[in-house]
Amino acid sequence: MPNFTEETISVAGGNLQVYKGGSGDPLLVLHGAGGNAGPRRYAQALAEKFTVYLPSHPGYGKSDRPGWVETMQDLACFYTWYQEQEGLENVRAIGFSMGGWLAAEMLSMTGHAFSKVMLVGAAGVKPNDGEITDIFIISPAQVRDLVYHDPSQVPEWDELFGTDPTPEQAQQAEADREMAIRLTWRPYMHNPRLPAKLGRVNVPTHILWGENDNLVPVECAGLYQQAIAGSQVTVISNCGHSPQIEKPDDFVQAALAFL
């Protein structure tokens, strides 16, 4: 199993926590609103083929928040800065949920952020029929219940949720939630102008969704596909908002086939 290390680098005047592991071409993985769960099973599998970079977004985990990072567009600016500094431009990338939105914002700003990109259960685009679930007026436990379609098929369930969080973990979860509130409050979890700006994207884009996503409606997969010319969609059946955790084998297979 590839060995992951945790390092801290200075970016844009603040410390950025990055898990890094594996070998091969770089693969940038952008976590969702809930925070950086570290190199889970899916990341270990991807690290067999790629050098996986899994940073904690500014304000999340052990990463500082430069005071100017207030919006998703600020966050996208931060990451293009990071890419330039670390020589990680034109790399493969995967963005989960809010991290998918982040990747899409970066795509809308520059043509040389990514060589190939996967958007997984991505927020960022307003659904026509459904709604993106408001995770800020329900408790974290209620959010978790909505994320997973069938907890019994989550192989890492015990590791992730088997024990009550320590006070430090609870505090971290609260700080992470605060950062999500900062970034995505209004308009909630989407940018009305994003679809139009995605018209410029000309890198291979793969859109992947859990069929039973209870947070970001699966119709958003189609909306992303309409916005990004030539993009492909895969829907994983019997699966919730986080295929990489709920069905890691199916997810990794789809990811490797595309990347």
Partner: peptide, 10 residues
Amino acid sequence: LPRDYASPVG
């Protein structure tokens, strides 16, 4: 009142 209503994070 749920905590997330009375005193949201932040």
